[in-house]
């Protein structure tokens, strides 16, 4: 593509990042199934690399930005459609690269000369989008409501947005008290509870390195959700899902009164109420509250439900 030529691409270029191929594979399965149901074309970005992530920024700022830049350059090579980055950390890192290139000439120069050395196209405006924002803005609450074919059998849900999706380089939702996930779920017949900790840190990779601290942060999130009578937590980030899901057994050893809360991706809930097959949505991969999840996600598809 020549410099300056506007993009004519349609659909979305899917940037999985490491987690959606591993611990967060249910997010990939449910996302792709949901987008298929909504007839939104999605293509995986060819030969994508690690986004650079939070951890890389701690060691080498320049290379962290260059890793992010290669992905954006590949997106341009692939036609320049919007990049769909479902992991909150990938979403932030890719957008931070764009933001820093605009703000700091030194970063823009580094990126430019690296892409030249690597024989990759220079950066152009590529939009980096999060599924929540795409569902809210491109699809819209009304279309989601109209597509509902199953009645939600589960209880009320606490919507947990996590940290890096809503700040600071973002268009997903407002940074204090985001409500888009709540609005979407309410529209498709899933009740939500007020959840003051919806953007508080889950502990991120600390659960693996300084376990007491990491698990404690996740515990506080779950305890608050339980106190609000939530029967599950809806998430939009693979690391949030991992921490809240996998460490619950450990939390219950120190606090047996903590109820088992399924940690479900927004895309799994939506995919299911819109008629997707539970297997295709990866719901069998939930660890905490697995029996509850199995019960909720087995009721039959009915006639279109008006919610």
């Amino acid at each position: 593509m020549a410099n300056g030529e506007p993009s004519t691409a349609t659909g979305y270029l899917y940037y999985p990042g490491c987690s959606l191929k591993g611990t967060g594979i249910a997010y990939e399965e449910s996302l792709l199934t949901l987008f298929r149901l909504l007839e939104l074309p999605v293509t995986e970005l060819t030969d994508w690399n690690c986004c650079g992530a939070t951890t890389y920024m701690s060691s080498d700022e320049r290379d962290a930005q260059l890793l992010a830049a290669r992905n954006l350059s590949l997106a341009r090579q692939a036609g320049g459609a919007d990049v769909l980055a479902p992991c909150n950390a990938c979403y932030l890192t890719l957008r931070k690269c764009v933001d820093f290139c605009k703000k700091y000439k030194s970063v823009a120069d580094d990126v430019h000369s690296y892409l030249e050395d690597a024989h990759l196209p220079t950066l152009q405006d590529v939009a980096i989008r999060h599924p929540l924002e795409v569902l809210y803005t491109d699809v819209g609450v009304e279309r989601l409501r109209a597509g509902v074919v199953r009645k939600w059998p589960g209880g009320p849900v606490a919507c947990y947005y996590g940290c890096q999706a809503v700040r600071p380089y973002t268009e997903v939702d407002r940074e204090s008290n985001p409500m888009r996930m709540d609005e979407i779920l309410n529209a498709v017949g899933v009740p939500t509870v007020p959840y003051a900790l919806k953007t508080k840190c889950c502990g991120a990779s600390h659960t693996g390195t300084i376990r007491d601290v990491g698990v404690r942060l996740s515990y506080i999130l779950l305890r608050e959700a339980a106190r609000q009578q939530a029967k599950a937590v809806a998430v939009i980030c693979p690391l949030c899902q991992f921490n809240l899901d996998l460490y619950q057994a450990e939390m219950r050893r120190s606090d047996p009164s903590l109820p088992e809360l399924p940690i479900i991706y927004l895309t799994q809930i939506l995919g299911w109420v819109l008629g997707g097959d539970p297997k295709d949505l990866g719901v069998q991969r939930c660890v905490s509250g697995a029996n509850t999840v199995r019960q909720w996600f087995t009721s039959e598809k009915g006639a279109p439900v008006h919610v």
Binding site: K21, G22, D47, L66, R70, Y114, E116, D117, A118, A249
Partner: peptide, 29 residues
């Protein structure tokens, strides 16, 4: 728990065009 739910692949991930990575491209450029 990760393994039994198919969430822990044991393979080593890598991109195909490794020569485009920042460390390699800088050495050549």
């Amino acid at each position: 728990n990760l393994m039994r739910t198919g969430r822990l692949p044991l393979g080593r991930e890598a991109i195909v065009r490794k020569w485009e990575l920042p460390a390699r491209a800088a050495a050549k450029g």
